[in-house]
Write a protein that binds this DNA or RNA. Structure first.
Lengths: 136, 136
DNA sequence: GCTTGAACCTGTAGTCACTATAGCTTTTTT
DNA sequence: AAAAAAGCTATAGTGACTACAGGTTCAAGC
């Protein structure tokens, strides 16, 4: 009848380490669960859902403070999509500059293949990059 | 005639904090510069280039250890193109996962908009995701 | 030439989001 | 019942900075 499970089981269900769960509890992101006779943590479905939400959000790059805010908003039906939008913009910027860098590297590699005697000047090219595309 | 400049000038030229430069020096990522009579750091162009390279690479998500390796290998002549190639592969990977992330955020935002009565489902989307698409 | 005040110095401590370790107790399995 | 696995707390360490305290040096204005 009991649907309770241990911290190890929860950690597997959410794909994170046991220590991380205890850490989330310590900083108040996860609620304090029930305890067994001997003092071990006992969780149920709600904990698992919450933890999965936290972990997935972390994977998407939200900070713990973002997540705290998201969780708070979800409790009062505010609109949480502004955070997602903000995050999306940051991701897009990063993609843009990585793409520029990749193209730059392609150019370098090609130059190397043409047998330019000597080195490719990785540092110069990469440090110049900021000046020519400069969107930081 | 002197092309030397202070740590504050360097920090502005590279877009980072003064403390960060001293930190890089401490961990051996930036070389110890010359000093003024009174003991203040005096840099020149080469330092600026190197620091810009480091900062730009950091912005793109490379670790200081990655950067250390890149810098070290770029100093041994001849191997530069293999570094570039390896680096390119890493950049491509990062682009791939960021693109996936962006698409997912788009999906989230869109689903948010569909719940037009101010009802945002970001939270549901985030906690459900792992179960339905689960590729982490 | 003197006096401000901004910029610099060293060293240490704090931040975020964990992760690892030590030394113990509880639970599960054999 | 014994052994192994998993749990407990508390503390320290990680990476990549960032902030602070308390002092020194430098450039500019008078």
């Amino acid at each position: 009848m009991s649907t309770l499970f241990s911290i190890g089981t929860l950690s597997k269900a959410a794909g994170c380490k046991v220590e991380t769960i205890r850490y989330y509890e310590k900083i108040g992101l996860m609620p304090e669960p029930a305890r067994s006779e001997g003092g071990q943590r006992r969780y149920h479905r709600k904990h698992r859902e919450r933890l999965r939400f936290i972990r997935h959000s972390r994977e998407l790059g939200f900070t713990l403070d973002d997540i705290r805010e998201l969780l708070a908003m979800s409790e009062q039906h505010g609109h949480a999509d502004s955070i997602a939008r903000r995050h999306r913009a940051a991701v897009q910027n990063r993609i843009r500059s990585l793409t520029a860098l990749r193209d730059e590297l392609d150019r370098m590699i090609e130059e190397c293949e043409q047998g330019h005697e000597g080195e490719c000047r990785v540092i110069e090219v990469l440090s110049d990059h900021q000046e020519c595309s400069g969107d930081h």
